[in-house]
């Protein structure tokens, strides 16, 4: 099942297991799924005590949006580790060879297509503003660092797709962007210890401000990491297509 992994585009769509085995497995998985549904039906949903506690404690959390309060105050440790997860993937996908350019480098390909120019002039600035709005609004309505980071990354990816600019992910500044979210989070977690005696325990008066600091840093890191992920995947795919003429034929025909 995992021993044979297909990479070719035209490969057979399913494994070479016999139909009987596949049919039996499908039935088994179906049965197990139904049993799962039955077990879920059989149990009463627990009383929302934790939800009530969370909603009651919101006034102490420094923000008004309950989801943000859970993510960045009550269970902020989860979010800290989750930013570490993103950092792992970013480090793993960093390019190998270093170009000797600065963080951003522009080439001579000035975009001329009106749609592209419109994209650069309107959509991208709007996305940046939208991202800032999402970040700010996270304090009292749905929104926050992840949503803002995703929108910001979208703007960045669109900008890179124009092909005029390139990012050098091995510069110190690039690595600083990647690590910023985690570093700020850990430092804030540690600096509140003298004040309150517990890591990640923000003093009530400063909770809102500290959460905002963490969220800004996290937004920048998340956006940068997401841009890196998409850009690296595209770069590798392009590199792979270029030397192989057979690969591009299909694209030309379509």
């Amino acid at each position: 099942m995992f021993n044979k992994l297909e990479f070719e585009e035209n490969a057979k769509k399913t494994t070479r297991t016999s139909r009987l085995i596949k049919g039996l497995s499908a039935v088994t998985i179906g049965l197990l799924g139904s049993m799962l549904v039955l077990s879920v039906i059989s149990a009463e949903k627990a009383a929302p005590e934790l939800a009530q506690t969370a909603l009651d404690s919101i006034s102490l959390s420094g923000v008004e949006n309950p989801v943000t309060a859970v993510l960045l105050n009550f269970r902020s440790y989860d979010t800290l580790l989750e930013i570490a997860v993103l950092l792992i993937v970013a480090v793993a996908m960093m390019p190998e060879s270093s170009r000797n350019t600065s963080l951003t480098a522009a080439n001579s390909r000035v975009p001329t297509h009106p749609v592209l120019i419109g994209l650069i002039r309107c959509v991208i600035p709007l996305s940046v503003i939208l991202s800032a709005y999402l970040l700010w609004t996270g304090a009292y309505a749905p929104g926050g660092a992840f949503q803002a980071g995703a929108v910001l990354a979208g703007a960045g990816v669109a900008l890179l797709l124009v092909k005029r600019w390139q990012l050098n992910y091995l510069r110190l500044s690039a690595r600083a962007f990647m690590a910023l979210g985690l570093a700020v989070f850990v430092i804030v977690a540690a600096t509140v210890i003298p004040a309150t005696g517990r890591a990640l325990n923000y003093p009530a008066d400063y909770a809102g401000a500290l959460i905002l600091i963490i969220e800004v840093a996290a937004t920048l890191s998340i956006a940068f990491v997401l841009i890196l992920l998409v850009d690296q995947l595209l770069n590798m795919a392009n590199k792979q297509v270029k030397p192989q003429d057979t690969q591009t034929e299909g694209l030309d025909k379509s």
Partner: peptide, 21 residues
């Protein structure tokens, strides 16, 4: 209950990271 919402948000980010890798 905001807790599962936070769990889903965390889960999405982890899924994105795993898929990208």
């Amino acid at each position: 209950d905001p807790v599962p919402h936070a769990m889903v948000l965390t889960g999405i980010v982890v899924a994105v990271a795993g898929t990208a890798l």
